[in-house]
């Protein structure tokens, strides 16, 4: 078995790299794939929190690199899904504790046992980014429909194109708000795709549920009612090669539709 190594990166911070990583990883694992997530954000780790695995971490990637434990010992199994593993970052060290070669070696070892290796990249384009990208052959660039995020994503795509190892990269548009786009207050999907001229792999709508799920340590894909959860599930299905149409994120218009929505909310069956 030779697993696919996908780096999830963005350049700008706070656009949802870690959330994307946790959700895509969980969604892939739910489909029966063996998934390992590597947190390379040394010193500012968060992926463990989002998965609710903070209290299980004994060894980190730095312990593996410095040979205080075996790679298998450092993999933390998910609470619910045995297909899902996490290789946590060290909280008390900085980005220099791991080198590009070491990360590459870890990815190569993990490829034998896992279908997917998702690498969570830190913000920025410094050593942390270089490390995260080192072992990967595919990339997902996360961006939001804001000028600053799109500008940074452009910079990242430029850097990725310069790397020989990265065979393909896809764009993921996060925190999308259709009503703002309709009011011409936000860049539309087409605008972003046009600026970046990259293939789109998914559009995730803004969802307040993300905040709750982060606080609970429970990825939102486990909540099937949530629109963002469905969108992440679709992204995962596109990654394994399924042809899934994009979700209709438009709010229903007109009086009848509004009434329909009101009643469905009342009964608690959201469409």
């Amino acid at each position: 078995m030779s697993g696919r190594v996908i780096v999830i990166t963005s350049g700008k911070g706070g656009v949802g790299k870690t959330t994307t990583n946790a959700n895509i990883g969980t969604a892939l694992a739910k489909m029966g794939k063996k998934v390992v997530m590597i947190d390379t954000d040394l010193g500012l780790r968060n992926l463990d929190l989002l998965l609710g695995l903070e209290n299980r971490i004994v060894y980190t990637i730095v312990d593996v690199v410095e040979e205080r434990c075996k790679l298998k010992q450092a993999l933390v199994k998910d609470k619910k899904n045995p297909n899902l593993c996490l290789l946590a970052a060290a909280q008390t060290r900085d980005k220099t504790a791991v080198t590009e070669e070491q990360l590459k070696e870890i990815c190569e070892k993990l490829q034998k046992d896992f279908d997917f290796i998702l690498v969570d990249c830190p913000a920025g384009i410094e050593q942390g980014f270089q490390n995260a990208v080192a072992g990967a052959s595919e990339a997902i660039v996360v961006t939001t429909p804001e000028m600053s995020a799109v500008r940074d994503a452009d910079r990242i795509i430029g850097l990725l194109e310069a790397k020989e190892e990265i065979k393909s990269y896809k764009l993921l548009l996060n925190r999308y708000r259709p009503n703002m786009v309709n009011a011409n207050d936000m860049m539309s999907v087409d605008d972003v795709v046009e600026i970046l001229s990259a293939e789109l792999i998914g559009i995730i709508p803004e969802d307040t549920g993300i905040i709750t799920s982060t606080n609970k340590g429970e990825p939102i894909v486990n909540d099937e009612k949530s629109l963002a959860g469905q969108a992440y599930n679709n992204v995962a299905r596109r990654i394994i090669g399924e042809d899934v149409p994009f979700l209709n994120l438009e709010e229903p218009k007109g009086m009848v539709a509004k009434m329909k929505k009101f009643f469905s909310n009342l009964i608690g069956k959201e469409k």
Partner: peptide
């Protein structure tokens, strides 16, 4: 505490009260 270790013994906080903050 997220984890307590004394000597070679190890305990972690139960998931039921696993609050990140």
């Amino acid at each position: 505490a997220i984890q307590l270790r004394i000597g070679d013994t190890f305990a972690r906080r139960p998931d039921s009260i696993n609050i990140p903050y």
